[in-house]
């Protein structure tokens, strides 16, 4: 058997196509083509389970089926919700395809990334945050408002890019909780915390050139031209673009000149002296990396999935004998 992506889902599309054959509808296609079509959907954040439906529908329609839906079995999700769904907190969300009850406050709503998308943003509870998404024509009608707390029941978990998120569908009931039932999370002041090591550093850090326009501030490759604003005279700035890694997850963080100085002890003047001494702009990044690689840091701010928006941070203290004793005892209690 050739190794094909999404084999299970390709088989599901095949089932739909075969069930249409009894009505004389025949579709000529290859498993590879079906697999590619499913992958195209996945790239657009559509679950493979949903892609099965869309791909089957479009193939059957092309082959002349008037009502393709009758051949497509199953709903949009792996298994239907049962009567009672476990109520989980943000920190407990690990499995995809699970029907749950979730209570959270909308702390951010972003513009949809695709035209097929309806709403997206982040929900917070006392334990953390989770991304939510709803799609056009999914049947989910509630317009979620930033700052409001909702009870979602049932809602299904999905996975994208290694992160579990909530998918709001027509099955999902969203009830707005008010007064004492609301979580009391203020989107303007809400922060999360991550702890990890700076394990890697990325391009476009160190001494950089920015567009001088206050509303733009884009990092420029060519200091005389901003792709958005046209001809400009760039402003030199310092920033750090690093990867924080806690052994399970990683985030990209940006640190501005002031934050970089407080961690790496490098002022703007010192950076310029370095460049003068070595006659090489890249020395600033190298210096920051040499100071910060391997540091254990606690960051406060907003989790945005792949990146973390830093508002504040502190270096973690090295462990005390007591800290180590606690770990040792945890190990000793293991079978």
């Amino acid at each position: 058997m050739t190794d094909i992506k999404h084999q299970d889902h390709v088989d599901e599309v095949r089932e739909a196509l075969e069930s249409a054959e009894k009505d004389g509808i025949s579709v000529e296609t290859t498993d590879e083509a079906i697999s590619n079509a499913i992958e195209d959907h996945r790239q657009k954040r559509v679950d493979p389970e949903d892609a099965v439906r869309y791909v089957s529908r479009s193939l059957l329609r092309e082959a002349g089926a008037d009502n393709p839906r009758q051949y497509i079995s199953g709903g949009s999700n792996p298994s239907p919700p049962s009567g009672v769904n476990p109520q989980l907190t943000a920190s407990q969300l690990e499995e995809e395809g699970e029907w749950i009850e979730f209570i959270g406050t909308v702390i951010e709503a972003y513009d949809p990334s695709y035209s097929e998308m309806d709403q997206q943003g982040r929900l917070a509870d006392e334990t953390g945050t989770v991304r939510f998404v709803s799609w056009q024509n999914s049947g989910f009608e509630t317009e979620l408002v930033t700052g409001e707390t909702y009870r979602f029941d049932p809602v299904v978990t999905t996975e994208f890019d290694g992160n579990v998120e909530l998918k709001l569908t027509g099955t999902t009931q969203a009830e707005r909780l008010e007064g004492d039932d609301a979580l009391g999370i203020d989107p303007d002041t809400y922060t999360e915390t991550i702890e990890g090591v700076l394990v890697d550093f990325q391009d476009q850090m160190g001494l950089i050139e920015r567009c001088p326009n206050e509303t733009c501030r884009r990092v420029l490759q060519d200091p005389t031209v901003c792709p958005d604003c046209g001809e400009v005279e760039s402003e030199t700035d310092i920033r750090t673009k690093a990867v924080v890694d806690d052994g399970e997850d990683s985030w990209t963080v940006f640190l501005n000149a002031e934050q970089t100085d407080s961690l790496a002890q490098l002022t703007f003047e010192q950076a310029e002296q370095l460049v003068e001494k070595y006659d090489y702009t890249g020395v600033v990044k190298e210096y920051i990396v040499s100071q910060l690689h391997g540091e254990y840091i606690r960051f406060h701010g907003r989790d945005r999935g792949r990146s973390f928006n830093v508002s504040d941070f502190e270096l973690l203290n090295p462990p005390s004998v007591t800290d180590l004793e606690n770990v040792k005892q945890e190990l000793e209690q293991l079978p």
């Binding site: 394990v199 690689h293 391997g294 540091e295 254990y296 090295p318």
Partner: peptide
């Protein structure tokens, strides 16, 4: 990436890794 580091990070890493 490889960098020289202060000794205290050794302690942090051992705790983390344990």
């Amino acid at each position: 990436s490889i960098t020289d580091i202060p000794e205290a990070l050794y302690d942090s890493w051992v705790k983390d890794t344990a």
